[in-house]
Design a protein around this nucleic acid. Structure first.
Length: 598
RNA sequence: UGCGGGGUGGAGCAGAGGCAGCUCGUUGGGCUCAUAACCCAAAGGCCGCAGGUUCGAGUCCUGCCCCCGCUACCA
C-alpha cells in the first residue's frame, strides 16, 4: 500500500521578491522530494502559500504609497508565476487571506483557549502619541539594549541576534512616521503558553525516529526545549488589519502573524480538500499515529524554532481532532523538518550596496529551468552555508550537466538515429560488460532512490551523475562508431545497451531535471508524460477571490522502475537537451548586478 | 560586545573513530559518435594550530588562531 507523503513548504511573505537562495534552500528541495515520491507511486500532497500578514507588507505599502492589498496581490502573483516556471508541483499554493484560513485559525485559537493553552495578560507596548497608533514589533526601531546597535528592530536585534521586548529599546522611534514621542502603555493580549508543551517537546524530540533528522535542526530544537525556558508568547497585536480574534471584546486587536502563518499547513490541506470536492479528505493527512502518513517541512534555518518547537506545541495544544475530550487521534506532528542553511551570494561579498538580488522571476527568464535546478541542487546548503557565484553556476552547467549527461544523450541518440534508421536497434546476446553496465544503472533505482528518500539531494544527484559517467566509459570502450564498420550486430547491441541505460537514467534524474528527462523520454520514442500538469485558477470564497497554483498528477506515466526499452521503437529526431553557456555570461551578469545597484 | 556557519590537494565540497574521497581545474596520452564534448593515466593534502582521550583521531575532549554571513526586510 502506498504511503501518503505530506510535504509542507515554508510560507513566503508577500512583501518582496524571492531570490535564488530561497529557491535552493526552501522551494526546490520539496519539489524534488515530491517528484521522487510520485514516481515511486506514493500519494503526495504538497502545500504552501503566501503569507499575507505581517509588518513587512505594511512597510512596503507605505514606502510605495500603495495599498496592502496591492502589495499582496503583486507578490503573490509573482510567486505563483515563478513557481510555475520552475516546475514546483504544489498540489495547492494559496495564501492566508482566505475565509478557510481565517476559519481554521479561529478554530485553533478557540481550542487552545478551551484547553488552557492560552491566557491573557497585560503587556507594555509602545504607543506613538502624535500619530495615535500602537507600534508593535517591527513598526518600531531603536538602539539595542544589549549591543547598542542603533537600528535594532522591535523584536530582535540584527546586530547581536538577541530577542527582547520592544519597550526595552533605547531611544525608540516609529518606523512609520519617525516619531520619537512614544509612550509605554499597558495593553491586554492573548498568550500561547509554550511552557505547557515543554515536557511533551522534550519527550518528542528524543524519540528514536529523530535519528534521521539533520543534526543542526535537532541540536537547535533540543537546546530550546531542554533549556526549559519556553514560556508564553503573545499571539495578538494592537492592529486594525489581519485575522480577527474570535472572542468578544477584542475588536481593536488582531492575531499576530507568527501564530497564523504556521497554521497555513493545516488550512491549506483543508482548502485542498474543499477544492477536490471532498471537504473531509484533509483528515487522512493529519491523524497522529497513522503509519501510512509522513509529513515533511521544508524551510530555511531561521525558521527551525517555529517548525520544530512552536508548531509542534500548537498541534499538541489542539488535542484530539474530533473534540477537546474525544478519544480519537490528535493532529499529526512533523515526521521531519529538513531545514537547509543559507545560500549566500558570493560575487558581491564586499559590497555594502542594496539590491544585488537574483530574483527567481529573473532567473527563470534568463536560463534554462533545468540548468538552475541542477546547479542549485548541486550547490544546495544542506548542511552548511554555501556560496553562489556566476562562475560556479556556469562551471556546473557546462562541465557537469552538459558535458556528462547532456552530451551522453546527444552523442548516443545522434549516432543511433543516423546509423539505425531512426529506431532502437535490435540487440544480440549481451556479454559480461553489457550486463555489468546495466546492473549498475539498474542498481541506481535503489541507491539513488534511497538518497532522495533520505532528503540527501546533492548526494542523489552526484550518484546519478556518476552512473552517467559509467555509461560514457562503456561507450568509449565499446566504440560502436568503429565497430559498426566491421560488425554491425555487435554495434547494435552496445547502442541498445546504452539507450536502455539512458532510458533508466532519465528517471534517476527526473526529480531534479523534470523537463529534460521528459525530453529524453520523448526522444527515445515514448509517448506520455512522466509527470502531471501544473495549472493556476481563481478561487472564490467569502473573503473574495484568490489565485492558486495547483498540480494534477492524473495522466502521469513516470514510474520508478527499470522498465525494458522495446527494440525497434522509433526514435524522435535528436536535439540538444541543454544550452552550453558562454563564459561571457559571468561578466554580463556581474555587470547587470552592478547596474541594478542603487 | 553578540548570534550563526566554517577552516580537508589550485577551486568547490563529502567524510564525523579504523589504509584521505568526489566534482572541476592542471599535465601527459587515447578517441573522433558527440554541445572542443568523451575515455585513460599522472601530479597535487603533516584534514587551521597546540595539547588530551584511544590500540587507533579530519572524525571525540580542552584551549587557541583565522575566515565568512548577520545591509538579499533575513528562507
Amino acid at each position: 500500500m502506498p504511503q501518503k507523503i505530506h510535504i509542507c513548504v515554508a510560507w513566503p511573505y508577500a512583501a518582496g521578491d524571492r531570490h535564488i537562495g530561497h529557491l535552493a534552500g526552501a522551494y526546490l528541495p520539496p519539489d524534488i522530494f515530491a517528484r521522487y515520491h510520485r514516481l515511486v507511486g506514493n500519494e503526495v500532497l504538497m502545500v504552501s502559500g503566501s503569507d499575507t500578514h505581517g509588518t513587512p507588507i505594511t512597510l512596503r505599502a507605505d514606502k510605495e504609497s500603495i495599498t496592502r492589498q496591492q502589495v499582496i496581490e503583486r507578490y503573490h502573483t509573482r510567486f505563483v508565476e515563478a513557481f510555475l516556471q520552475f516546475g514546483l508541483t504544489f498540489d495547492l499554493y494559496t495564501h492566508t487571506d482566505t475565509q478557510n484560513h481565517w476559519d481554521v485559525t479561529h478554530d485553533l485559537f478557540l481550542r487552545h483557549l478551551a484547553r488552557a493553552y492560552m491566557y491573557t495578560d497585560k503587556q507594555y507596548q509602545l504607543y506613538a502619541v502624535d500619530d495615535q497608533q500602537w507600534l508593535p514589533d517591527r513598526y518600531v526601531e531603536g538602539t539595542c539594549p544589549f549591543c547598542s546597535f542603533t537600528q535594532a528592530r522591535g523584536d530582535q536585534c540584527d546586530n547581536c541576534g538577541r530577542t527582547y521586548d520592544a519597550v526595552e529599546l533605547v531611544a525608540p522611534y516609529s518606523r512609520i512616521t519617525g516619531s520619537t514621542n512614544l509612550e509605554k502603555r499597558p495593553t491586554e493580549h492573548f498568550f500561547f503558553d509554550l511552557g505547557q508543551a515543554n515536557d511533551f517537546l522534550i519527550e518528542w524530540l528524543n524519540r528514536p525516529d529523530k535519528a534521521s533528522w539533520r543534526t543542526h535542526v535537532l541540536n537547535l530544537a533540543r537546546a530550546r526545549a531542554e533549556s526549559r525556558e519556553l514560556r508564553g508568547r503573545p499571539i495578538t497585536r494592537d492592529l486594525d488589519w489581519g485575522i480577527t480574534i474570535p472572542v468578544p471584546g477584542y475588536a481593536d486587536k488582531r492575531i499576530y502573524v507568527w501564530y497564523d502563518a504556521v497554521i497555513g499547513y493545516l488550512s491549506a490541506t483543508r482548502e485542498w480538500a474543499l477544492l477536490t470536492g471532498d471537504p473531509a479528505a484533509w483528515e487522512a493527512w493529519w491523524r497522529e499515529g497513522d503509519e501510512q502518513v509522513e509529513s515533511f517541512y521544508f524551510i530555511g534555518k531561521d525558521n527551525i524554532e517555529f517548525h520544530a518547537i512552536i508548531w509542534p506545541a500548537m498541534l499538541h495544544g489542539y488535542g484530539p481532532i474530533a473534540g477537546p475530550d474525544a478519544p480519537g487521534p490528535w493532529l499529526k506532528q512533523p515526521s521531519d523538518v529538513p531545514a537547509n542553511e543559507y545560500l549566500t551570494l558570493g560575487d558581491f561579498k564586499f559590497s555594502t550596496s542594496y539590491g544585488n538580488v537574483i530574483t527567481i522571476n529573473d532567473a527563470a527568464e534568463r536560463y534554462q529551468i533545468d540548468a538552475w535546478r541542477y546547479a542549485l541542487t548541486a550547490m544546495a546548503p544542506e548542511t552548511q552555508d554555501s556560496e553562489f557565484t556566476w562562475q560556479e553556476f556556469v562551471r556546473r552547467v557546462n562541465t557537469e550537466l552538459v558535458a556528462n549527461w547532456g552530451n551522453l544523450v546527444n552523442r548516443v541518440l545522434g549516432f543511433a538515429f543516423k546509423q539505425f534508421e531512426g529506431h532502437v536497434p535490435q540487440p544480440g546476446a549481451l556479454d559480461a560488460q553489457d550486463e555489468v553496465l546495466l546492473t549498475a544503472v539498474r542498481g541506481g533505482f535503489d541507491s539513488v532512490g534511497a538518497l532522495y528518500a533520505a532528503r540527501k539531494f546533492k548526494a542523489a544527484l552526484d550518484a546519478a551523475l556518476r552512473l552517467s559517467q559509467e555509461v560514457n566509459r562503456y561507450l568509449n570502450d565499446k566504440a560502436p562508431w568503429t565497430l559498426i564498420k566491421t560488425d554491425r550486430a555487435a554495434a547494435a547491441t552496445s547502442v541498445y545497451v546504452v539507450l536502455q541505460a539512458i532510458d533508466w537514467l532519465k528517471l534517476l534524474f527526473a526529480p531534479v531535471l523534470p523537463s529534460s528527462s521528459q525530453q529524453v523520454h520523448s526522444l527515445l520514442g515514448h509517448d506520455g508524460d512522466l509527470f502531471g500538469r501544473q495549472y493556476t485558477e481563481m478561487v472564490a470564497d467569502a473573503r473574495g477571490q484568490h489565485l492558486v497554483l495547483r498540480y494534477d498528477h492524473r495522466g502521469a506515466t513516470g514510474s520508478w522502475q527499470p522498465a525494458p526499452l522495446p527494440a525497434g521503437q522509433p526514435l524522435r529526431k535528436p536535439e540538444a537537451l541543454f544550452i552550453k553557456l558562454d563564459e561571457s555570461v559571468i561578466e554580463e551578469e556581474l555587470a547587470r548586478m552592478q547596474v541594478s545597484t542603487p
